[in-house]
Design a protein around this nucleic acid. Structure first.
Length: 510
RNA sequence: GGCGAGUUGGCGGAGUGGUGACGCAGCGGAUUGCAAAUCCGUGUACAGGAGUUCGAUUCUCCUACUCGCCUCCA
């Protein structure tokens, strides 16, 4: 059995993974706050954990892994959206509108993550379904002297937990010196954080011993992981921006509520995602959602492949060049594995994955399998990281169109050209075919025509807009030119390819 | 200011105390009427400095640079 090694943020070391209970390996991933579409960065930990879960199931057995990922459906941004909808005259109570908003966002999230080939977790708890448990946890923490109520709030006392700051390598003193904490008169220590806060009448709230209120941000993960996985479990993770304060606070809450449990053994944090070398942000204009990419016609499998090309602990740069390369590779591999039955998983792939989820190394091994022509091994091994699976391959199939009439016509012209040595007519037809998105292969044996995948005008337009003109004027011009040509039907796009074929038939098949 | 990550050939990106992945691009060749596709071949890369060592890209320290987090954004 492959020994799995993972980098544990808690110890800052690469450690052999030893499950608490090999018959039930338990992991928890901090899921989304469901206020809007998931952006591309949200998808990274999901894909990382999906690979991890596949590996764990492979090693410990499909039924011996429990994967939990929450939906945080209590949040001020959700409230704000619901409030603005109500103000705009939407029907229903505020609670209804909040529910509507979270339901619709969860639906989007599922659709988007499904498209990336990420299997749904075993449990997807919603924070609102665990309010009672959160209140109980707050009461327990107060009883144990780790929290206190003040002005309708319940606050966690960081001074009551000596290891506070250990995960993120900070000390309470340093953080106070940084002075980036909310100062509030009811806090005993400026670093104390909110477990429960009061709600006004316009905000969603639940009755509690401290009045009507709602939970703070961190308590839901502590409450839900306890309910579903117990006081201690194997792996807990998320993006490294969650390390502080979110995970730090979770640890403090959970460890104080359940002394001696240790909470999560291994903390797994993925690095952030960048776009074309820059942080993805709305102000830079390079902010986009998973759905934006899917709508441009970029297959989820391609997005996944790009993600896996970079180790999860390194910043990942999303670039157009990577997208193209990933798509090309997947097409090649899909052609190779088409119709093949999965064989056995390559030990080299397994060994790469076991080494701190070295997906880039695993992909390198897949390249070797492909080069060796081992379709069965490639298919089985790729499935370990969620690639080349039948369910995700639709995008790589090209439409079945009978091109034999075109091939015959070209063959006739070519046969004549062979005699006259004047190939102008052949070249002209070939050029037209290529422009229409048909690949032309001529050999002594004959002529082979193949419909090539072509981009949609929307995708090309998106690319020309995505380019920062100052940085990449040539690129931007290239894509806008291409879009123009597509519109003018001088170049095939998904939308106009049928028309172009029609025109070619008119020209050459009469 | 505090904390952390990183710096590998044209590009992307693994890995290793001593025979320098892998992919893409490039170049050369085969093939082709020319191409495309395919196949074969091809690369004096490890930010800088000091140290440890028989030997370091790989370990330690320092410097430079890049990036992220500390703002309920994964």
């Amino acid at each position: 059995m492959a020994e799995i090694r993972l980098t544990n943020t808690r110890t800052r070391k690469l450690e052999d993974f030893e499950p608490i209970d090999p018959s039930d390996v338990r992991l928890y991933l901090c899921g989304p706050t469901v206020y809007d579409r998931a952006h591309l960065g949200n998808a990274r930990p999901v894909v990382v954990f999906d690979v991890l879960v596949r590996l764990l199931r492979h090693v410990y057995g499909a039924d011996h892994v429990t994967y939990v990922r929450n939906f945080t459906d209590v949040d001020d941004k959700i409230n704000a959206t619901a409030a603005s909808r109500k103000a705009a005259g939407a029907a229903g109570t505020l609670e209804d509108l909040i529910r509507e908003r979270t339901e619709e966002t969860i639906g989007w999230y599922h659709a988007d993550m499904d498209a990336l080939g990420a299997a749904r977790p075993d449990h997807e708890p919603r924070a609102t379904a665990y309010i009672g448990q959160m209140i109980a946890m707050c009461e327990d923490l107060i009883a144990k002297g780790h929290a206190y109520a003040a002005e309708g709030h319940v606050l966690f006392s960081v001074e009551s937990y000596k290891d506070y700051g250990r995960l993120s390598g900070r000390s309470v003193e340093d953080m106070i010196a940084g002075a980036r904490v909310e100062v509030a008169p009811y806090k005993r220590n400026p670093m104390d954080f909110v477990l429960w806060k009061p709600s006004s009448d316009e905000l969603p709230g639940w009755d509690s011993p401290w009045g009507r209120g709602r939970p703070g941000w961190h308590i839901e993960c502590s409450a839900m992981s306890y309910e579903l996985l117990g006081p201690s479990f194997d792996i807990h993770g998320g993006g490294n921006d969650l390390m502080f304060p979110h995970h730090e606070n979770e640890i403090a809450q959970s460890c104080c509520a359940h002394p001696g449990s240790g909470f999560a053994n291994v903390w797994l944090h993925n690095e952030m995602l960048q776009v074309e070398g820059r942080k993805m942000s709305k102000s830079l204009g390079n902010f986009f959602t998973v759905r934006d990419l899917l709508d441009q016609g970029i297959p989820g499998e391609v997005i996944r492949m790009v993600f896996l090309g970079t180790h999860y602990r390194k910043p990942m740069d999303w670039t157009e060049a990577k997208r193209e390369e990933a798509e090309k590779t997947l097409r090649k591999w899909r052609a190779l594995t088409d119709g093949a039955a999965p064989g056995t998983v390559s030990p080299a792939v397994l060994s790469a994955l076991s080494d701190d989820l070295n997906t880039a190394g695993a992909i390198a091994e897949l390249h070797k399998l492909a080069a060796a022509g081992d379709a069965a091994g490639l298919k089985a091994s790729a499935a370990m990281i969620g690639l080349l699976e039948d369910a995700m391959g639709g995008w790589a199939e090209t439409a079945e169109v009978d091109l034999s009439a075109y091939a015959d016509a070209l063959a006739a012209i070519r046969a004549q050209a062979m005699e006259t040595k004047d190939f102008a007519a052949v070249d002209a037809m070939k050029k037209d075919l290529v422009a229409a998105g048909i690949e032309v292969r001529m050999s002594k044996a004959g002529i082979e025509l193949k419909l090539m995948p072509v981009e949609s005008i929307n995708s090309v337009l998106a690319k020309s807009l995505n380019r920062n003109a100052a940085d990449d004027a040539d690129e931007a011009e290239f894509w806008s030119d291409l879009a123009e040509r597509m519109k003018a039907n001088q170049q095939a796009s998904q939308e106009n390819q049928p028309e172009m074929l029609e025109a070619l038939a008119e020209k050459y098949l009469k």
